[in-house]
Design a protein around this nucleic acid. Structure first.
Lengths: 333, 333
DNA sequence: TTGAGATAGTAAAACGTTTTATGAAGAAAC
DNA sequence: GTTTCTTCATAAAACGTTTTACTATCTCAA
């Protein structure tokens, strides 16, 4: 069963390919095609079930109605939820999303950008890894819209949307201090991206501002791609070695590993030991006791990202760069 | 900065476009291009950073090296984990994945298939919704590989990979009965797809085989797209009205809502009240007490799916349909 | 009666590849 | 010295669209 082409429609309708094309693209009026012809062609299209070949269309027009979404890991619930929201909203505007995970690996990220580029996506939404700056600059030089989210790369002149990581982290620590906590640990990762650094800075600043000494020994940096069992072991020794009374986990998966570690140690979370997780997760609400968490405004992030990329796509000129920082919310449980 | 085309390379190398194309596609030997020319062209390609335009390539060859993955909801951890695994494995074989969520909505699923079709994806991996049969038949008639997973549509003559839902459900109920449970509830959804039905059948059959009366009042069917608050309310009234001593949740998100309901009721999970969730989730391991769950073999499902689709893609003839049923594992916690 | 707009439509180029068919030059065979 | 292979390479068609530039006919005013 050969698939239909615009030519088949033209022949069937007894008009030229051009005419059919105008009608398909809603330019019939503008190009003064008669009502009668429009009606006839539309009918034939409908009953034959003809769908334009998007590949050919992309080749000719140079755009694809596809937005590339590059994230760290689709199986992380933060990203999968954002992806779902973005997909939804884009879909309503006639754009499709194609997404892929970088696993925080620069090489893979570069390959993905190349793949998207050679597939002529119209725009890019990226939660970038370090080291990808030059590749993104090439995209920008090529006049492609790029929206960064979750983590900024400040050297790049483009749009960014993310939560106020510094402040959320600051407030978390402040809430510990107000509860009288003195030895507050931070468990974070060793990946060198802006949002992680900001969470760290927020932690430090809050301590300084409240006259609590910053102690390097209370900060545990977990290696990004390591086995969970090793992560748990490292956390256990942190929790055992120091008489910590509070801990902030800088990502949700670290918090989950942390809860496992605490469970293994039989260490109770409660008045003597407080925990806050960065990025909320269903686990935290259901956990006994429930766990406080920094809830990122997923809906607003997704909405802003989409709105920025769509307006950039529909504008002929480069819009002024927006850096949108959205407050995150500390959910105390 | 104009992007390079094969023509630019040809000009720069002083050879024809054809020659460059042969070299790019590894047909240089076969077409007897001299070593000298090959070397020269390859060098120019490398230093200029030329990448073939995949759109043009797809238009000409009719395939895209893209596999379309259609799932119910990317923000559901079962699907996002499968997606990640599939993406990974496909990537290694030179295929890209583009995925989209149906939200279990037939209309959206149809649109997605159309979109993928007009983008000429090479093959389809689908966790189907009911009502999509005819659209899939069209794909099959068009000789496109289609692999169904998670839920089968038995009327379709194509490959399927999924867990043994009937047996897993049966064993779950059996384990309840062995513990002496008498009033065993099932909380499931009202969507009419095979894997949900099988879980229900497994539940019924296990009861019958062990001489426990099947009682319709112990089965709660939750409407698919309803608000969680309503779901929780319905569960609460089930748990209150009947002196249930065990419950099997047919999906992980239902189990999570169920745990919330139990928490609100202050009902303890333990010797007097057992719970099993279908589809494991981090929540269940961490929960106090931890929750038993049916763990689907994600890795094997992904591996089998990819292996089937790749062999179908590389085979000229239609391979015999495979229906691969992989055992699921009951993790007792 | 002319000519200036409208009106209704089309032919053909272009997008960047792959692939088929063809050919030129030299070597080998007769 | 013609024929026949090899070897090395290319021209041009094709994929299915969009878009530019063009033509032909009609209408209406002067």
């Amino acid at each position: 069963m050969k698939t239909l082409s615009i030519k088949d429609i033209a022949v069937k309708a007894g008009v030229s390919i051009t005419t059919v094309s105008f009608i398909i693209n809603g330019k019939a009026k503008e190009k003064s095609i008669s009502e009668a012809v429009i009606k006839k062609v539309e009918e034939i299209i409908k009953e034959s079930g003809y769908k334009p070949n998007q590949i050919a269309r992309s080749l000719r027009t140079g755009n694809s109605n596809i937005i590339g979404l590059i994230i760290e890991d689709i199986s992380n619930s933060f990203f999968s939820r954002i992806a779902r929201l973005i997909e939804d909203k884009a879909y309503k505007k006639g754009y499709k999303i194609i997404y892929s995970s970088t696993e925080n690996n620069v090489e893979k990220a570069k390959e993905l950008i190349n793949m998207f580029k050679s597939r002529k996506v119209d725009g890019y939404i990226i939660s970038p890894t370090k080291g990808i700056e030059d590749d993104i600059k090439v995209l920008l030089a090529d006049n492609k819209p790029v929206i960064l989210f979750d983590r900024n790369l400040s050297e790049l002149e483009t749009h960014y949307v993310g939560a106020d990581h510094f402040k959320a982290s600051y407030q978390s620590i402040e809430s510990f201090i107000k509860k009288g906590k003195k030895k507050i640990a931070l468990v974070t990762t060793d990946i060198d991206v802006e949002q992680i650094i900001e969470r760290f800075e927020g932690y430090k600043q809050a301590l300084v501002d409240h006259n609590v000494d910053f102690n390097d020994g209370l900060v545990l940096k977990i290696h990004f791609n390591q086995d969970e069992s090793e992560t748990i072991a490292q956390m256990k020794s942190l929790f055992l070695a120091q008489d910590i009374d509070a801990v902030l986990f800088a990502t949700n998966y670290l918090a989950i590993s942390g809860l496992k570690a605490l469970k293994q140690l039989d260490k109770q979370i409660g008045d003597n030991f407080s925990v806050i997780a960065y990025d909320d997760h269903e686990v935290f609400e259901l956990h006994t006791p429930s766990i406080s968490a920094v809830q990122q405004p997923l809906e607003e992030i997704a909405e802003t990202v989409i709105q920025l990329i769509l307006s950039q796509l529909s504008s002929k000129t480069k819009l002024e760069n927006q850096k949108v920082i959205i407050p995150a919310k500390l959910i105390e449980r």
